[in-house]
Design a protein around this nucleic acid. Structure first.
Lengths: 225, 225
DNA sequence: ACATTTGCTCTACGATGTAGACTTTACGCG
DNA sequence: CGCGTAAAGTCTACATCGTAGAGCAAATGT
């Protein structure tokens, strides 16, 4: 017990919160529990986050900050591909935070979100606009890209919730509970479901998406000589 | 006050719950509040849902049941397109339920989800397999399709959270709060952000996706004569 | 050395989910 | 009809949660 209460700070609070969420899930993040982890009175936390909701926002912001984006990269396709893989890894590293990432924007207007969660949007717009997309098109491209990415991540995370101890596919996914009569195809696909390769699937999807987008770009450039 | 306490039932409870969520958001759905709406003691609800989590599951199941799927339709592309638009409308009708739809599967193994929420998966697999896709490919197609769909819905819902009274784009989205220095492109795109046409965007995306998938199908069929 | 800001704690309150024992109502069968 | 059993609904109670408000302690500026 060397630590003699080393003065709190926003970063300290948030990273303790993140650790708690990573280790024990979202529900474990209560003011009291977090206070206990930091060996402080729960009330002290309110210096660093207005309320619990703000704390959650802080956690998602902190996680999103792990994502590096280089808007100046001239090779926008490579950059988008790399970001996609990075975001995927980030999701696998912090699966319990994903619900926050996906859910909180639904109840917060763009302009009121923590800046850190809006920055990726701005940076990707910059990347695309610098690459030659008209601003409006850049926005459409961003939407297609992020939509696909988030969709993929949600898909993939749904398959890693059960402990990997169990390696019978039917059991691991709990598929044996489904009435065989009503869900024949699903049950038949158990083995395929079980060895889902998220990375490969993401990469293929990105390839298709990027080639589609590039075609779009070339068409646009050709139209405005 | 004609209603003389007409005997509870699961459907009654769930639809009251759904109404509450639609009208006042997820947080308004507490056992006590729901009991009050139904003019019953909160404890009576436990006859029809094991706990609050199960009640949430029931609500998402009920919402997903509004989605009609015809797995026997020979025109699988038309069917997938229609489902996509239907799901979008469903999301706009029940925006407060979407967090549930997206989030709960992340903490529930496939086989333990309410049957109603797994059925769409089974039915779309049926649709695709009957259309000629190999089961494994059907699964991949499903993932691409649903991933895209959910991604789009999340994207679109993020832009309807503010009251449509306000029609200055900068204000409506709260963009004026973003430092102009750090978010130039985003702010410049305010008007474009403001008149986002979700239906058109979805339809274009679906078109692209479907043509890609069809190409895939033709290739596969050609390979196995 | 003192005043003032800042960090932190204590106490308290209302709201929530739900366990367990109870009462009331509905229903089948003689 | 009546009566016993099961189902539906209620009551009370408790642990836990977020957070308001008043106060105490430590750091900081002058």
């Amino acid at each position: 017990m060397a630590s003699q209460k080393p003065r709190l700070s926003r970063e300290l609070v948030l990273s303790a919160a993140l650790e708690l969420v990573d280790d024990e899930g979202l529900d474990a993040l209560t003011m009291r529990r977090l206070g206990q982890v930091l060996e402080r009175d729960p009330m002290s936390l309110y210096r660093y986050a207005e309320n619990r909701a703000a704390l959650l926002d802080g956690v998602s912001e902190m996680v999103l900050n792990e994502l590096a984006i280089f808007p100046a990269d001239p090779d926008w396709k490579a950059q988008l591909r790399r970001i996609a893989h990075d975001l995927r890894l980030l999701a696998l590293r912090h699966p319990n935070v994903i619900p926050l990432l996906v859910t909180r924007p639904l109840s917060t207007p763009l302009g009121m979100r923590p800046l850190g969660t809006v920055r990726p949007l701005e940076q990707i717009l910059a990347l695309l606009i610098d690459a030659g997309f008209a601003p409006t098109d850049a926005l459409h491209v961003y939407r297609a890209y992020y939509g696909f990415l988030y969709g993929h991540i949600l898909n993939e995370l749904q398959e890693f919730i059960v402990d990997p101890e169990e390696n019978e596919a039917l059991l691991r996914l709990g598929l044996h509970r489904l009435p065989a009569k009503d869900f024949p195809r699903l049950r038949a696909l158990a083995p395929v479901l079980a060895d889902y390769d998220g990375e490969a699937e993401l990469d293929q999807g990105i390839t298709i998406l990027l080639s589609g987008l590039e075609a779009h770009l070339n068409r646009a450039v050709a139209a405005t000589p």
